[in-house]
């Protein structure tokens, strides 16, 4: 019932949302987080990952979320490759009986994904390309859990 996918192609937000809220009779709410490539100085972004470990680390996070909260269904999809501003990068969706579990579990998943899943962003700007540095704030958010 849970879905973990690492892929270069885009995902269908409507179809993923539909699957989550139809996952079980007891579903009372679905929370979805979608991360996108921010516009501005960045002309494009290339996401590299560690095939094999990436899927494993996302599955481990989903298992931990399931131990901590009562959840009906979880979907995590993360893209890799070259993406343009406005394109979707990541989908985190959680269906549960009540909203509190879905909000908490989705926030946990994206916070921990950002510090544990082996993805690296390289930005293209007018000045050239550069690897994105990890943010201290992301570590702080992940540690709350």
């Amino acid at each position: 019932m849970d879905v973990v996918r690492v892929q270069s192609e885009d995902f269908d937000v409507g179809a993923e949302s539909e699957r989550l809220h139809r996952a079980a009779d007891e579903v009372g709410g679905v929370v979805i987080f979608i991360g996108t490539v921010r516009g501005g100085a960045v002309r494009a972004m290339t996401l590299e990952h560690y095939p094999g470990m990436t899927e494993k680390s996302l599955e481990t996070l989903v298992e931990e979320a399931r131990r901590r909260w009562s959840l009906a269904a979880v979907t995590v999809i993360h893209r890799f490759g070259r993406l343009l501003p406005g394109e979707r990068i990541v989908f985190v969706g959680v269906a549960s009986r009540h909203r509190a579990e879905a909000f908490a579990a989705s926030e946990f998943l994206i916070d921990r994904l950002k510090t544990e899943a082996p993805f690296w962003k390289k930005e293209e700007t007018e000045e050239g390309t550069r690897w994105v540095e990890a943010k201290e704030g992301d570590e702080d958010r992940a540690r709350r859990w």
Partner: peptide, 8 residues
């Protein structure tokens, strides 16, 4: 071995 991750 790798630098801190920056996905999401």
């Amino acid at each position: 071995f790798f630098p801190p991750v920056t996905g999401g």
